[in-house]
C-alpha cells in the first residue's frame, strides 16, 4: 500500500496555489490528508499533481463576521473543539468535532477537506446544511459563495469545479439562548456514523433539523417540522420521506429505525436546552 508517484507543490500563497490548480486538470488539493492519503496508499486515487495547502496560514483562522462564524478551510477538527469563539457562540460544532475519528486524526484533518470529501456520514457536511452555511470557493481570478444545500451532490461528490479551492465555510450563528443538539450512532466511537441528526431551536426562527449518514448527502428536514408541536409528530414527519442507503455498514431498514430515535433524542435535547 504505497502511493503512485506524483509531482508535489507546497505553495506559500493562495495565488500560487490557485495558479497551480488552474494549470493542471489532474491536480489534487492536499489538506489534512486523512481521507486523500489512505486512498492514495490504496492506489484508489492517484493525482498527477498534489498541491499541499498546509502552508497557507490565511486559511487557518476562525472569526465572526456579523451573524456568521467563518471557519477557514485549513482549521483542524481538533482545534474547533476547544476554540473560544466556538465554545461561546456555537458549542454544537465543538460537540460534533469531538465525535470525528480519533485524536491523532483530528489533529490533522481539516474542515475544508471534510466538506470537499463529502462522505455521506461525515459531521461537517451535516453541520453545514443544518446551519445554512455558505461555502467560499476560489479559483484563479474568480471567487464565489454557494449555499451548503447546493454544494453537496451525492456520496463523495460536490459541485466544486476544476481548479477551485474551498477557502472557508460561513456558518450562520443561531441567536443567543438557542438550543442545539447532535446525535449519532456508530459501531465504535470514532467510526463513521450509521446515522446522525442535528438540530437547532431558536426563539425567533423556524426550527432546524438535518440528518446525515442516511442518504448519500446530508438532508435538511427543517421544513417537515413546520407547524408541528409535539416531538413524536416531528419525528414522524422528519423521517417520512427519507430513503436510507443500504450498504454493508447497515441495511436500509436499520438506518430508518435508528434514525427515528436519534431525531427524537436530538429534538428533545435541543428543546430542553433552549433559553433556559
Amino acid at each position: 500500500m504505497k502511493p503512485r508517484g506524483f509531482t508535489y507543490h507546497q505553495p506559500k500563497t493562495l495565488d500560487e496555489a490557485l495558479g497551480l490548480l488552474a494549470a493542471s486538470d489532474d491536480a489534487a488539493v492536499l489538506a489534512g490528508g486523512q481521507s486523500l492519503v489512505p486512498m492514495m496508499n490504496a492506489r484508489l486515487a492517484s493525482p498527477e499533481i498534489v498541491v499541499d495547502i498546509n502552508r497557507l496560514a490565511s486559511l487557518d483562522a476562525v472569526r465572526i463576521e456579523g451573524d456568521r462564524l467563518v471557519v477557514g478551510a485549513l482549521v483542524r477538527h481538533e482545534s474547533l473543539i476547544g476554540h473560544p469563539l466556538v465554545q461561546e457562540r456555537l458549542p454544537l460544532l465543538s460537540s460534533m468535532a469531538e465525535t470525528i475519528a480519533h485524536w491523532p486524526i483530528r489533529t490533522r484533518g481539516t474542515i475544508g477537506g471534510s466538506l470537499v470529501h463529502a462522505d455521506p456520514a461525515a459531521q461537517w457536511p451535516l453541520a453545514a446544511v443544518l446551519l445554512e452555511a455558505e461555502i467560499e470557493l476560489q479559483s484563479q481570478g474568480n471567487a464565489r459563495r454557494i449555499d451548503a444545500a447546493d454544494f453537496f451532490e451525492g456520496a463523495l461528490s460536490t459541485t466544486l469545479a476544476a481548479g477551485e479551492l474551498l477557502t472557508a465555510i460561513r456558518f450562520r450563528l443561531p441567536s443567543a439562548g438557542h438550543g442545539a443538539a447532535f446525535r449519532l450512532l456508530t459501531r465504535r466511537p470514532g467510526d463513521y456514523a450509521i446515522a446522525m441528526a442535528a438540530c437547532v431551536v431558536e426563539a425567533d426562527r423556524p426550527r432546524r433539523l438535518a440528518i446525515g449518514g442516511v442518504e448519500p448527502r446530508p438532508l435538511d428536514r427543517s421544513g417537515a417540522l413546520d407547524g408541528l408541536t409535539t416531538v413524536p409528530e416531528m419525528i414522524e414527519a422528519a423521517c417520512r420521506e427519507v430513503t436510507p442507503m443500504d450498504d454493508p455498514r447497515a441495511p436500509a431498514d436499520y438506518r430508518r429505525r435508528v434514525l427515528a430515535q436519534l431525531v427524537g433524542d436530538c429534538l428533545a435535547e435541543a428543546l430542553r436546552g433552549q433559553a433556559s
Binding site: Y8, Q10, L30, G33, Q34, V37, P38, N41, D52, N54, W103, P104, I105, T107, R108
Partner: peptide, 11 residues
C-alpha cells in the same frame, strides 16, 4: 499526535 502513514515526509 498524528499518523505517520498519512503524511508525506516532504510536507
Amino acid at each position: 499526535p498524528m499518523r505517520a502513514c498519512l503524511l508525506f515526509a516532504v510536507q
